[in-house]
Structure formats: structure tokens, C-alpha cells
């Protein structure tokens, strides 16, 4: 490069810098393409269901379109477009994502939905002891009705709450069933004195067929609905007993130390 050309370029680059420096207080508004949409809000009447569940999705912003898949695949604008409540009649994970011509798409939200086996449909359910009068749920039979409570246990009345060393659920089927595992749908909300059981034992034909333990919590965590799965030796039976054995006392680190914890259950699934 000739020195004169280099000098000329230097001159212009300095000139350019002084121009841009003089403009530094000018406001540059942010373009829409800088921002992502928030994820769509998905609500479902029941994440567990016997026949079908109804799912709705929403992101109330002009120009937003929500797309979804039912097979776990990535959601694009070539996926199915949401236009109204979706009816689901098999276990699957719904993935949804919001799109907009001006904004970046949202993160994908995934919602697993579970169709329950009909094995327990005609079972007779008994629970000992009785649920606490403040949290009676809808009675023992509601443990197999597929209707779940929400993490806000004071809303609705699907949760059965207990303060007892042992809660025993017995199921008598109308015909023999092959059992491979059972799932308890329970609530953990240590801040509200609601704890997971210490262990769960499953008896088939009067014999211990499965047992699972959970460690004692060491700090308050967020409220969460949990599925506790207990594998069972593959058994054919027309009756089951499920014993939830609770902690005797709330642990010492907790404000409720020394008193019995609560145990909350809203559903029992036979797999």
C-alpha cells in the first residue's frame, strides 16, 4: 500500500470515528428480533387420565402462533398449529413452542401426560386410617379416578392428607391382574410440613412383593407433585396392599421438628 493511500485511509477512519463519537448519545431503539417470546402456558384438566385429557395453550400477545408436536420431536413452524383445545387419548408428551414474525421463538415447553391402565378401574379401594378431616380428598375410591390435585394443595380437594405412622391402601380387583409396578402420586412440600414417606411396601397375595425407600430431606425445597414408582416382582394377583410408612417426626432442622409430618396422596397407579 502506498504511504499516501494509507494516510488518506487513516484520515477517513479518524473522521469516521469522530462522527460516530459525536453520535453516541443518540438513542438506538432495540429491534424486536432481539427478544424471545415467553413459553406458551399449557393447562390440562388432568395429567393422568383413563380415557382422554384436554389440553389448552395460550400466549396472549398479538401475532403469536403456537405450534406443537405429540411425538417428542422438535417443534417448528411446520409442526401442527394450535387452534383450540387438544384432546389426548394415549400416553404422550406434548411439546409446544410460540412463534411470531417479529420476535425470536420461545423455548419449548414439554408436558408429559399419562394414560392409566384400566387394571384398577373396577377395584375396591380401602384406606386405613381415615384421611384427616381437613384434607379428606374425595374418599378412597378417588385414588384410582385419575383426577390429580395441584401443587397448591389447598385448592380443590383431590388430595387426601394424613398424619399417621402408616397409611395402608388395599385394592381388591374384580379379576386377576399381572402387576409389574405401582406408582404413587404424592405431594412434597416440606415448607408446609408435607413430606414424602420414608418407605413404601407392596404386598401381593399377602406377601411382600416390592419395597422402596427415600432419604430424609435435609432442607426445604419447592413444592412439587411427585410420582413414586415402586417396582414389584411380576405377580398375578386379585389383591394388593400398599403401605406408606412415614417418618415418625419432622427432622430437627425444620421449624416443625418433633411433630408428625403430613403425607399427601391423590392417586395410585397399577402398571
Amino acid at each position: 500500500m502506498k504511504p499516501s493511500l494509507a494516510l488518506t485511509l487513516l484520515f477517513f477512519s479518524l473522521l469516521l470515528q469522530s462522527c460516530t463519537a459525536g453520535k453516541e448519545t443518540e438513542t438506538v431503539y432495540t429491534p424486536s428480533t432481539t427478544f424471545h417470546l415467553a413459553s406458551p402456558r399449557c393447562t390440562v384438566d388432568s395429567v393422568l387420565f383413563l380415557n382422554s385429557a384436554t389440553l389448552s395453550m395460550e400466549l396472549d400477545y398479538p401475532g403469536v402462533a403456537i405450534f406443537y408436536t405429540e411425538d417428542g420431536s422438535a417443534v417448528t413452524q411446520d409442526s401442527r398449529r394450535y387452534s383450540g383445545p387438544v384432546h389426548i387419548d394415549a400416553s404422550k408428551t406434548i411439546s409446544a413452542r410460540a412463534f411470531h414474525p417479529d420476535f425470536l421463538p420461545s423455548e419449548t415447553v414439554a408436558l408429559p401426560l399419562k394414560k392409566m391402565s384400566t387394571a384398577a378401574r373396577n377395584a375396591q379401594v380401602g384406606v386405613r386410617p381415615e384421611a384427616h378431616s381437613s384434607y379428606p380428598g374425595k374418599g378412597p375410591q378417588s385414588l384410582i379416578d385419575g383426577r390429580k390435585g395441584s401443587a397448591n394443595f389447598r385448592n380443590g380437594n383431590f388430595w387426601m392428607g394424613y398424619q399417621a405412622d402408616t397409611v395402608e391402601v388395599s385394592l381388591a380387583f374384580d379379576r386377576e391382574q399381572v402387576i409389574e409396578s405401582i406408582t404413587l402420586s404424592v405431594l412434597e412440600d416440606n415448607g408446609a410440613w408435607i413430606f414424602l414417606p420414608r418407605c413404601v411396601e407392596v404386598f401381593a397375595n399377602g406377601k411382600l412383593a416390592g419395597r422402596e425407600e427415600w432419604p430424609a430431606p435435609v432442607a426445604v425445597g419447592p413444592a412439587a407433585m411427585k410420582f413414586l414408582e415402586i417396582p414389584v416382582k411380576r405377580t398375578t394377583t386379585n389383591n394388593l396392599q400398599v403401605k406408606a410408612i412415614n417418618w415418625k417426626h419432622i427432622p430437627d432442622w425444620h421449624p416443625g421438628k418433633g411433630t408428625p409430618p403430613w403425607f399427601f396422596i391423590d392417586e395410585l397407579l397399577i402398571n
Partner: peptide, 14 residues
């Protein structure tokens, strides 16, 4: 709706 605000949520990640 009926004088009550529908529960609010974030729409844009700004």
C-alpha cells in the same frame, strides 16, 4: 372478566 383481572404472565423475554 366480571371485574376480575385474568391471571397475568410474561409474554416477551425482555
Amino acid at each position: 372478566e366480571d371485574g376480575k383481572l385474568r391471571p397475568m404472565y410474561q409474554a416477551l423475554k425482555i
